[in-house]
Design a protein around this nucleic acid. Structure first.
Lengths: 336, 336
DNA sequence: TTGAAAGCGGTACCAG
DNA sequence: CTGGTACCGCTTTCAA
């Protein structure tokens, strides 16, 4: 089923059918009606590949994230999609599951589909890949990766500040031994976030920290916490790299009969909805996902006339949120 | 950057470059090397639209879901994607947010992109739309919608059985007044699941039920529960349409000082990971998402030779899982 | 083993 | 307002 068949049935040329499809207002009403009738009767669906090929533009942007299962990424995606739709764009999504080969595959796929903009929310990326993207001249937004370049905009959250607020707060509550639950980064075990925590702790001499890592899931949070508690190091507070893993931590603590926050404090990061719904509600750090989503769209979709802006770094300051999962350090540490 | 430029640089024809790209083994090694070199130097990325157009097949399937934010849908999607990738297929995702216009848009988009198979996990669908899909002859799998047709496979869960198990269990625990928390369906308020619950309750004369509905989110679960408790009807147990909404319900109950399960029992549905991580862990009904995902892929992706099977209905029997959120009906109903 | 050329299904420019 | 037609970038015979 193609333009030509529709044209034949409506007794017009393919050019006219195309005009009707793209609501060019030049078509005479009676002609338009005839064409629409033919389209309906034939149940014709335009081939978007052909359209993109001929038209040269896809009106599509891509979003690649490490883990869409984590609401943090999903919230950003939703914000992007909503904005994109409002501007008549479609968005293609891809998940890397923190696997670098998948990242390569996904990026190539996006380029192959000729997206007009690409957002990569992926925490790590090989320099060659970045180079590859720069060469394509496609507008790109990185979250938390690399530095601004010609066609690249960079959004980064001031994690250092966020983490420092958490550490300082726990310190003020009397905690001296802190555990950190992180997730595996793609390239090697020493990930940036973990380093940030270690640095933040190092500012305060009386503080000690021990880290643990697992997958970025509820279960990973639980496993990492289990490992941390079994390690012999006896923290009175556990800082988690994000809310999802923190919920996993809560579960493990409950299993061991440790009360939060009386026996152990726990903090999350991101402030996803779940952090208010779990028990106890998490003390966490808010990162504005929709703001990030809006910025992405603004940078990726070229406004009428003006080309999309780029070559900038946008730093977002996170906000500390105290809820129920943190409290005074216990005087006597319960065995577990 | 296109095939021709690569061909020119490698001093071969576009046909040969194409052969290299598709690893046809006929190409001489030295030629292949020359082409690969040119490809790398020019940072050439094949245009997939052109490829699909010329080749006639997209090696892509589509998955449309009502709410990817709910892990139930996401788990299915993950399973589908994993299987699809293993067979060299890509998957395109779309979210409808339970909006029927979005469903229409998404389906048209998928057809336009010429997916070779389409899964619709969307609980409701207009007959004309189903007809439209039948006409395309694209293999389709519906979850919980419609009936088998020529190119349509139907997967359905035996909700009735699942709900009956829940109701019977609560009844055996002494509960007589049940609340039901559901979510808004797309078309009108009387959704199928709600009806199923009402029917299941009607089997047992001593039972009474009151329903409430809101969005399919944590917050929706909370709001619906709030409305239910404020309605004057005093349930001793709340049956939730899924786990996510059940977690929202738990939050509202906690807010009101009602203990689960001592003062109020709560049940979920789906058995997503979160149901084991929330507090208290949810009594729920397991629906095997990966099995569903596998079936979808098997039906959508034509095996070598054989065309994908279709025209069948596959019924899945859910499994009841007792955890901590249910208990004996309280003797004295606490005020709230 | 390689090249030439005919599509694939649209879009858009140029005439009429 | 409508038709003819040259591409868009790649795949796939058919010949050589």
């Amino acid at each position: 089923m193609n333009l030509e068949q529709v044209a034949r049935r409506a007794k017009v040329s393919t050019a006219t059918v195309s005009r009707v499809l793209n609501n060019a207002d030049v078509v005479k009403n009676t002609t338009r009606a005839r064409v629409m009738k033919a389209i309906a009767e034939l149940k014709y669906h335009p081939n978007l590949h052909a359209r993109n090929l001929a038209g040269g533009k896809s009106r599509t942007i891509g979003v690649i994230a490490s883990n869409m299962e984590n609401p943090f990424f999903f919230d950003i995606y939703k914000a992007v999609e909503s904005d994109a739709h409002a501007r008549g764009y479609e968005v293609l999504v891809a998940n890397t599951d923190y696997r670098s080969e998948q990242l390569v595959t996904s990026i190539r796929l996006m380029i192959g589909r000729r997206v007009e903009g690409l957002a990569a929310i992926v925490s790590e990326m090989a320099p060659e890949l970045i180079e590859e993207l720069v060469e394509t001249r496609i507008p790109v937004v990185f979250y938390d990766v690399g530095t601004p370049r010609q066609n690249i905009t960079n959004i980064r959250v001031n994690y250092r500040r966020g983490v420092e607020k958490v550490v300082d707060y726990l310190h003020s509550l009397g905690h001296r031994r802190l555990g950190f639950v992180g997730h595996h980064a793609m390239l090697g075990p020493i990930n940036e976030r973990m380093k940030t925590v270690v640095d933040a702790v190092a500012r305060i001499p009386s503080l000690a920290v021990r880290t643990s890592a697992d997958t970025d899931t509820l279960q990973g949070g639980r496993e990492a916490t289990r490992a941390l508690l079994d390690s012999g190091f006896a923290p009175t507070a556990i800082i988690c790299v994000n809310d999802v893993m923190a919920v996993g931590a809560l579960r493990e603590l409950r299993e061991r009969g440790l009360r939060v926050p009386q026996d152990m404090s726990v903090t999350g990061f991101d402030n996803v909805k779940l952090s208010e719904y779990c028990y106890p509600a998490l003390t966490t750090v808010h990162i504005p996902r929709d703001r990030i989503g809006h910025i992405i769209c603004e940078r990726l979709i070229s406004k009428a006339g003006k080309p999309a802006p780029a070559d900038r770094e946008i730093v977002i300051d996170p906000e500390f949120m105290v809820r129920e999962s943190t409290g005074q350090a216990p005087v006597v540490i319960r065995k577990y």
